[in-house]
Design a protein around this nucleic acid. Structure first.
Lengths: 199, 199
DNA sequence: GTCTATAATGAGATAGAC
DNA sequence: GTCTATCTCATTATAGAC
């Protein structure tokens, strides 16, 4: 292998780790499996990272950052109600999960992995703070576009929305029942829309 | 160790495995850790179970069965509304989680563990079918006690309730924010009560 | 800096004495 | 049936040649 800047090598290893976790789960994400996926030697790993634990911590930070780009900002057609915008947004979120269910499994597994390590509780909390922030932004934009206001702080609505999508995601990952998911989405859109008042 | 009937030994190992998973996570639930917790020798394990995998499958079946006893049947006071009954039930569910958060972490971890093994997808589905059945029973009783009917099949309401409690549980496990949990519970009780009509 | 080779440890499973 | 002792393999991490 040619010389690669350490930062680049670290990044390549993190991306490889994410692929391994998504495809085969956290338990399978051993140092060896990760370097094999990255096409590197075992020693190169320990040149870039002090330990397997250090990589896992970086991995969680990385996926939190990646999530940013996958935000589904509502794109309301003229005259759409807040309920319709919510429904379309949650729907398109589910579509993204259906397109890559393994990745979403990986997100849950990494959250629970983090919750089992002392330093990780903080990482899991950061992960969710990030989710809440993304949801808050989308909810604020959605409210503005449909001329409504939330009847409580938008952060509180965001927590509700994330709880609903977590429950929806887990149910779909377990049951793979598209009809049940559609019914859940309708419920969620109705229930959250019920927290909005005309501006 | 004295002679122990195989069935009893299997059960002791499963209970020990559940304690290990709850206290230290699925990753730490090695055969050796389990026999140490059970106070048995390694060989005794393989006398009772063909493999570590077989025990894990049994463990998931076992926790599903145990969940039965922890159902919170609504105990409505005279004249309580369906919303109040729902709120009290979800509240007492959260209290049970707060009393033993490790156990609830273990439930999630085992679900995701199952979702990563070929035979396990079926187990995870059974686990959730069981949750849905328990919720359906509670919801039917709650509706009867408060003189309402659900405006859709009770199984569908059950799926909604489970999704909400999953989202609530995960949020609390990550953030340990009791105030946010209370707000989520109020929302969930309102939203689900909105699916009921006077009988 | 990057590699091969090799500790050192811990895993699941089994053989064989009792 | 139950145990101790052991096998075989995979793991993280490191030493040392280049």
């Amino acid at each position: 292998m040619p010389r690669i800047p350490t930062a680049e090598r670290r990044n390549a290893l993190i991306q490889a780790a994410l692929r391994v976790v998504a495809q085969r789960g956290v338990a399978a994400a051993t140092t060896r499996a990760i370097v094999a996926e990255a096409g590197m030697s075992l020693a190169s790993f320990h040149y870039a990272f002090a330990s397997h634990d250090e990589l896992m911590a970086e991995l969680i930070r990385e996926i939190v950052a990646q999530e940013e780009s996958s935000v589904v900002l509502p794109h309301p057609s003229e005259g759409a109600t807040v309920r319709e915008v919510l429904r379309a947004s949650i729907q398109s979120y589910l579509v993204s999960i259906q397109a890559d269910p393994q990745r979403e499994k990986a997100m849950f597994e990494l959250t629970h992995y983090a919750l089992r390590t002392p330093a990780g509780e903080h990482l899991a909390r950061m992960q969710y703070e990030h989710y809440y922030a993304l949801a808050s932004t989308a909810l604020a934009a959605g409210a503005e576009a449909t001329n409504v206001v939330w009847d409580r702080p938008v952060e509180e609505v965001a927590r509700i929305l994330i709880a609903l999508t977590d429950g929806l995601t887990l149910a779909w990952l377990v049951n793979r029942d598209d009809a049940a998911a559609a019914s859940l989405i309708d419920f969620a859109a109705d229930a959250v829309a019920g927290l909005a008042r005309p501006a």
